[in-house]
Design a protein around this nucleic acid. Sequence first.
DNA 1: CTGTGTGCAAAGGGTTTGCAAGTAC
DNA 2: GTACTTGCAAACCCTTTGCACACAG
Lengths: 140, 140
Amino acid sequence: MDKAVQILSQHKLRKTPFRLDVLKLFLNNSTKGLTTHYIEESLEDFDRITLYRTLKTFEKSGVIHVAIDTSQTTKYALCHDDCTAHNHLDDHAHFLCNQCGETYCLENVIRPEITLPSDYTLSSAHLALSGICSSCNAQS
Amino acid sequence: MDKAVQILSQHKLRKTPFRLDVLKLFLNNSTKGLTTHYIEESLEDFDRITLYRTLKTFEKSGVIHVAIDTSQTTKYALCHDDCTAHNHLDDHAHFLCNQCGETYCLENVIRPEITLPSDYTLSSAHLALSGICSSCNAQS
DNA sequence: CTGTGTGCAAAGGGTTTGCAAGTAC
DNA sequence: GTACTTGCAAACCCTTTGCACACAG
């Protein structure tokens, strides 16, 4: 069973070769946030404009989400199975490694209880962490 | 006593008219994150390039910091008095209002205790919240 | 006076839009 | 066949760099 095909079907998106390639890239890096730069380097034969449109389509459909981290570069990461177009369930933390530059989705670091000032209504919370990741720590 | 002059002195920056204008803008919006777009609209007579350089200088000196929020636009906010060049003490939360688009610094919503997977070293944590702010809630 | 800041021009990088041709369903 | 997707060109916006002039200290 092809996971990529399944995801596109699930989100009612056409299964074009390009979309499948991009999606497989995310599936192979399911715990990381990917920059467009990285995606471009990983794709054999690509058109940058089509890539931007594909990412936007994926994001709108709930296939991927923008990973909020402390870098100023936009990073995209695979959504959970249960994300839909208007209900992104990506409240887990994103960790930017200051050494290797990778952004990791830390599924287990969930949003802690937050107390807002009165009259503020909370709809989403993202924890943007930075430091040194486990693999960089292991090398030193 | 002029607060703007004082801040520039404190950070050993030259007190040019332009810098004072920009800094006053931040002082008048001390709890908000400002976009370059907003700053440009607020300044009478400005050069965009100089503005970018001023913001970068302020950031490096610890006068302002980049406010991490869920918008994809860079926003700058005034630092605490005790921020220095290499020690930004801006671990408070940033709240993006989905209605008015304002970003608020919530000084009282501090970073909660975070438990990272083993071998991860934490150096900074930013809480990026979104929802509806108090003034928008009041109007509905 | 000296080193820093400013203003202008130009360039760079990321991202979006328009449109014709191609393709999934 | 029809609606959506792709690929190319061009444009757009934000941001940076280089350099001569102006100005703060």
